[in-house]
Design a binder for these strands. Structure first.
Lengths: 144, 144
DNA sequence: AGTATAAACTTACCTAGGTAACTAAATGCG
DNA sequence: CGCATTTAGTTACCTAGGTAAGTTTATACT
């Protein structure tokens, strides 16, 4: 019955992306673009590496999404002192719009989770975090 | 903190797909292809609609994957008596290989879930199933 | 019967993620 | 210093999913 578990995870992942995309339509954004904007709103300026490390995706994925965000004026990029890296930050117009978008997304998420109590949500996160292979970040220290 | 929950679901979804893809590499398959083969192994011949209804994806997604499975000889398709529909079934060579692949995938899944007890896995599925909007299938009957 | 509507599948095009191979800059080291 | 290696980012190409529009067949209705 393990099969069902991953099936279910996969389903809910797609469902939530679909709902978020739907809500973002009025802002002309997609879910992965929003996840980057949200990231920048939390942490301020970031290099692309910091972004893909945080989102736990590969570098090319972030490159592509960021290029589109830059083209549509949501972010600015500049070279770092290390000229290999590019420092990304929200444009001023994005800064203004982000809070409203965040509210909208929060509503979508609350909607999807309306059948779960706060305790159940905590439990769910906790259980999800236990999925994975042996090595996790907290073991890196004593790894050897 | 809702944000974290969907973030986590998304992460685990991608992680499990990645691991499954890795394991399937030796068979020349991808995860979504496998999900269709697995489906056919359970239910025998199916129309494409039955497949995408079961997997809960859109028709074009199944069309594409099925075309590739047909090209690489894993499945056969024939017209139904209703000439609009196409009936899909495993090829005989696929029938032979599927059990071994299933064993391999099961190992991957057990690996990913090794930190969770059986009870925790049940709990996790149960909680995941509670994610969603108002209308669910079991309400269709009394819907109206 | 004839026409309109619905259904099953396909095609075209979009975002999202992955790997592999590449470029350019920084770092390490003899 | 000069060369090899590493690192940040990009490019090209693959699967996976979605929507919108098109095709062909079945069904409904007058």
């Amino acid at each position: 019955m393990n099969k069902l578990l991953f099936h279910e995870i996969h389903q809910k992942s797609r469902l939530s992306i679909k709902e978020v995309n739907d809500a973002l339509k009025e802002f002309g954004l997609y879910s992965s673009q929003w996840s980057i904007l949200f990231c920048l709103k939390q942490f301020g300026s970031m290099t692309q590496k910091e972004i893909w490390k945080y989102l736990n995706v590969e570098a090319p994925t972030v490159t592509r999404t960021i290029v589109r965000l830059e083209e549509s004026g949501w972010i600015n990029r500049r070279e770092g002192t290390d000229k290999r890296e590019k420092i990304v930050q929200l444009s001023s117009s994005a800064e203004q719009k982000v809070p409203e978008i965040e509210k909208r997304i929060r509503r979508v998420e609350e909607n999807l989770l309306s059948k779960l109590s706060d305790e159940e949500q905590d439990q769910l996160i906790h259980l999800l975090k236990k999925i994975g292979l042996e090595s996790t970040e907290e073991k890196d220290v004593k790894n050897g």
